[in-house]
Design a protein around this nucleic acid. Structure first.
Lengths: 342, 342
DNA sequence: ATGCAAGGAACAAACGTTTGAGCAGATGAG
DNA sequence: CTCATCTGCTCAAACGTTTGTTCCTTGCAT
C-alpha cells in the first residue's frame, strides 16, 4: 500500500516537540519503563489517534530483523486438501500476529527452490513447506542456518526436520483391513508418487494389512505414478486390463486419483460397489453425493495446519535445533457405500 | 528467515575495499551508468557469488517504498472457487516478481477491515479483495490514498473501483433459459447473500430469463440467505414444503448451496432430474461424478485471476485513478444430466 | 604549462523504527 | 550547601539499501 501521506513517528514528534524515541516508546507501550510522564504519553497517544498513525512494519522489520511473516510453500492451493490446511495455517498465524506469504510450487522442485531463495530475501521468520521432490537436500541448509522449517504432508526420513502429516500408514491399514473384512483378497492399490513419504507410507500400510490377513502381496496389483487424476486414470486402466490380476476392490491413495479411477470404471461400465469396491484416501464434502457415496480415509486437515504452526512457533521460541518432532495425525475411516461383500 | 550470517553490501564493500554504493550499483546492473570499471564490476560480482549474497528486500522496500507484495483478502480459501482464483493470482504475481500475502476473512467484515489495516502497515503495493459486506465504504479511502485495489467476484455499484467478476447476469440468464427450454415454468431460485453483486446479478438474470419467456416472477419462488450449504438446505426446505408453489426445477446460485439443496432432495426422496430438475452455479471436478451429473454454470476462474492481476498492475503503472474498469468474464453452461423435460 | 573533460569511485543522506546511553533539572538526604 | 538520586526526556547509532552529489585522477587539447 503506498503509504502516501502516512504519519510517521518523526512527524508526531515534530508536531508535539518531542523526540522520536519518546514517541516510539509511548506507542510501543514502554512509556513507564522509560519514565515518560503520563501527560506526555497521553498527548502522544492522542496525536497518534488523530493522525491515524500506523507503524511501518517494514522499518520495524529492518531494525528488529523480524518480519512477522511466514512463507508457505505448497504444491497446489487448488487441491482441497492443501486449501484446507492452508486456511488453518493462515488462521493460526493471524492469531499470533503473523502473515502468510503463499507460494504455489505447482509440483515443481525448481519453483520450490526458487521460492526458497526469494523468501530468504524477504527475511521470512519461518517456513512451512509441503515439499515436492523426493529429497530434501535443499532444505537442510535452511535449518543449518537457523531458519525454522516445518514440513507438512510429506517428510524426508533422512532430513531431521519437524513435520506434520497424517498417519498414512495407519489410515491405509485401516482402509485395506476394512476391504478384507468384506471378503476381498484381490485388492489393487493406485499409488501416488513413488519416493514421497505419503505414497510410501500408504503403500506400507496396504502391505501390512494384506500381510496381517495372510494375503500375499502382488506387485502387479499396484500401479500409479503420482497423485494426479491422469495418473489414476492410467493406472486403473492397466489394473483392469491385466489378465493376470482381477481386483475385486481398489484402494486409491488420493482424491484426484480416485476421479481418474472413477472415470475408467465409468467407461468400462463397472458399477461401484456391485462390480468392484472402492476406498479412497482424502475425504471431501461431495464424497457423500457421488453416484456411489464413497468410503474414504479422512485426514484431519485442521489439526495438521494447527500443529504445523505450533511446531514452527516452538522453534521460534526455543531455537531451531531443539525441535525435531514429527507428528502423525490420526485419520478416520468414513464408511459409506462403495464397499460391498466380495 | 533469520538471515544469520547473511552477506550484505557493506561486507562485500569492506572485503573489496570499495564503497557500498559502488557495490550496490554493480549488483543492481547500473555499473555502466555510473562508470564503474569492468574490472571492479567483475570483482564485485565474483565476490557476491562467492558469498552467496542475497539482497535484503526489507531494506530495499524501506528505501524504495515498494514491497513487491500484494495483499489478497478472500472470504474462504477452502472454497474451490476462491482457491482456483487465488492460485492464478499467485502465479501471475510471481511471474512479475510479486508475492502474495494471503488473508482469509472468514466472511467477516470485521476481519476484513482488520486485515486492511495490517496490510497497510506492511506497505503492500496493492490489494485484491473479494469483499464480504454489502458496502465498500472502508475501501473508498484506500483508493483515495492512491492504493491500487481490485475487487474480485463481488463489486459495489457505488464504489468506483476496478473489479473482475463473472458475467453473473448472463450466466444465470442462460441457465434459467435452459430450464425454460425444457418446459419448466415453475422455477425456484436459491439465492446467495442479498446485497452482494453476485447474488443480485444472478437473481436479475433469473428474472430477466423468466420475463423474456413471459413467465411471471413469483417472490415465493426465491429463498436463501447466503452462499453456505446450511442456507441452501434451509431454503430448499422452505421451497419444497410450501403449498402455494410447486417448483419443477431449481436454480441454485452456488456450489455449497447446491449441496444443501441436494441434501433436502435426498431426504425427501426426490430424484434429479426425474422429480425435479437442477442447475447450479459453479462447476466442479466432481460435478460429473455426482449421483446425477450436474448441469452447471462454469466460471472462468483462471481469467478472473489473471485479469485481476492485470488491472492491479495497470494501476501500479498508470496511477490508481486512471483505471476504473469493471470486467465481466463470460461463463459457460455445462449441460449434464440434471435437467429433464417437464 | 594550463585548463578541461572524462573516468572511476566515494560520501552522505534518506527510508522509519528501536534502543542503549546520556543529559539536564528537580528533589531529597546529610 | 553539596552530593547523590530520581525524573523526564533527548541523542545517536543501527538495520541494509539506494542515489544525487562530490571528489580525485588521468589524459588530452590548447
Amino acid at each position: 500500500m503506498k503509504r502516501y501521506e502516512q504519519t510517521t513517528l518523526k512527524q508526531i514528534a515534530a508536531d508535539l516537540k518531542l523526540s522520536v524515541s519518546t514517541v516510539s516508546r509511548v506507542l510501543a507501550g514502554k512509556g513507564d519503563r522509560y519514565r515518560i510522564s503520563a501527560q506526555t504519553a497521553d498527548r502522544v497517544k492522542a496525536e497518534a489517534k488523530r493522525t491515524g498513525f500506523v507503524p511501518n512494519q517494514i522499518a520495524s522489520a529492518l531494525r528488529l530483523k523480524r518480519t512477522h511473516t511466514i512463507g508457505l510453500i505448497i504444491p497446489d492451493i487448488s487441491n482441497p486438501f492443501f486449501a484446507a490446511v492452508a486456511r488453518q495455517i493462515e488462521m493460526e498465524a493471524a492469531r499470533r500476529g503473523y502473515f502468510i506469504i503463499l507460494c504455489d510450487s505447482r509440483d515443481s522442485t525448481g519453483a520450490e527452490v526458487e521460492y526458497l531463495k526469494l523468501l530468504q530475501s524477504r527475511s521470512v521468520d519461518g517456513l512451512i513447506i509441503s515439499p515436492v521432490g523426493r529429497i530434501g537436500a535443499h532444505l537442510r541448509g535452511l535449518r543449518g542456518n537457523g531458519v525454522p522449517v516445518v514440513l507438512i504432508d510429506r517428510y524426508f526420513p533422512d532430513l531431521e526436520a519437524p513435520y506434520v502429516t497424517s498417519d498414512n500408514y495407519g489410515g491405509a491399514y485401516e482402509a485395506v483391513t476394512h476391504l478384507i473384512e468384506y471378503g476381498h483378497t484381490q485388492i489393487a492399490c493406485v499409488r501416488g508418487i513413488a519416493g514421497s513419504s505419503t505414497a510410501d507410507d500408504r503403500l506400507a500400510g496396504y502391505r501390512a494389512a494384506l500381510g496381517a490377513a495372510g494375503i500375499d502381496y502382488d506387485p502387479q496389483m499396484v500401479a500409479g505414478d503420482d497423485f494426479s487424476e491422469s495418473s489414476g486414470y492410467a493406472a486403473a486402466q492397466v489394473l483392469l486390463k491385466s489378465k493376470s490380476v482381477k481386483p475385486s476392490a481398489i484402494f486409491s491413495q488420493g482424491n484426484l486419483i480416485t476421479f481418474g479411477v472413477l472415470r475408467v470404471l465409468d467407461e468400462k461400465n463397472l458399477a461401484v460397489p456391485v462390480d468392484i469396491s472402492l476406498v479412497s484416501f482424502d475425504d471431501h464434502y461431495y464424497a457423500s453425493f457421488l453416484a456411489t457415496p464413497l468410503t474414504t480415509v479422512a485426514q484431519d486437515k485442521e489439526s495438521i495446519g494447527r500443529d504445523a504452526v505450533k511446531l514452527l512457533f516452538r522453534q521460534l521460541d526455543q531455537g531451531v535445533d531443539k525441535i525435531t518432532e514429527g507428528i502423525h495425525v490420526p485419520t478416520f475411516l468414513i464408511k459409506r457405500k462403495s464397499v460391498a461383500y466380495c
